[in-house]
């Protein structure tokens, strides 16, 4: 898989996004930008609006106020389907594999979806499965997989779409330590090989601190801090909002 260095560095951006559900503010003023070739961590306490923000960035949720920008174009209100074709892929907490299809076909579907022909799509599926160490599982039914591998197939399916931005919603949840290590390697690899920006929602601090170039902190729907892992660790607002419970 050769990586193509884009001349202009693309970005995926949320600008001053507000979302309310039935009068409850889920997000009130969140802004973040994700560059290509960058790993950005998105953290915050439960209910801070992390998944909602990812939903906004991927077109699942239309913001009440604010906008979403993809490499300088305003893409607010585009459907998830359109954004996927423009290179914004995501995974879900619930993975949502096509259970009755084989692992290979799950990944192939991603490649077909972005418009590759049958032969090229199968080649790419092979490539991605090899890369993620799933080649031996290729013919297994997706709903027969153990949990950790199921997650990896979810990532493989997103990667088969060759995204420019990949948003991972809690990919380490429920994984054991060895699987977490593998996941870290995979995410580093994604950036290196695909020149792809990765947004990572994660509660596992070891994963976040070890991987991210920058970390963005949400609290009660607001962006409260952003910076290098060491800055975030030292930030007193963040400690109060979030790390206080987990990190002392």
């Amino acid at each position: 898989m050769q990586s193509v260095r884009a001349a202009d560095s693309g970005t995926l951006e949320a600008r001053d996004v507000h979302v309310r559900f039935e009068g409850v503010r889920a997000i009130s003023g969140a802004s973040l930008h994700l560059g290509q070739n960058e790993i950005l961590g998105l953290i915050g306490p439960n209910g801070a609006g992390k998944t909602t923000l990812v939903n906004v960035l991927t077109g699942f949720q239309r913001p009440d106020k604010g906008s979403v920008w993809l490499s300088g174009r305003n893409v607010t209100g585009r459907t998830p389907f359109q954004l996927a074709r423009d290179g914004v892929a995501r995974t879900f907490q619930g993975v949502r594999l096509f259970g009755g299809l084989s692992v290979f076909q799950n990944v192939e579907a991603g490649a077909l979806g972005v418009g590759l022909g049958g032969h090229r799509a199968r080649e790419r599926a092979d490539e991605v499965l090899q890369w993620l160490n799933l080649a031996s599982q290729a013919m297994a039914r997706a709903d027969a997989l153990p949990f950790g591998e199921e997650r990896r197939v979810g990532i493989a399916r997103a990667l088969a779409m060759r995204p420019r931005f990949l948003l991972l919603d809690e990919p380490a949840a429920g994984l054991n330590e060895r699987e977490c290590d593998e996941l870290r390697e995979v995410i580093r690899d994604i950036r290196r090989r695909l020149d792809c920006g990765v947004l990572l929602i994660e509660h596992n601090m070891a994963v976040i601190m070890g991987l991210c170039d920058r970390i963005h902190v949400l609290d009660q729907g607001r962006s409260i801090a952003e910076g290098a892992p060491s800055d975030i660790r030292a930030n007193s607002d963040v400690k109060r909002a979030y790390l206080g419970e987990d990190f002392v």
């Binding site: 389907f81 074709r85 892929a89 579907a109 991603g110 979806g113 972005v114 418009g115 779409m161």
Partner: peptide, 8 residues
């Protein structure tokens, strides 16, 4: 829904 998301 998921199929649409992977571009089908």
């Amino acid at each position: 829904g998921m199929a649409r998301l992977v571009g089908v």
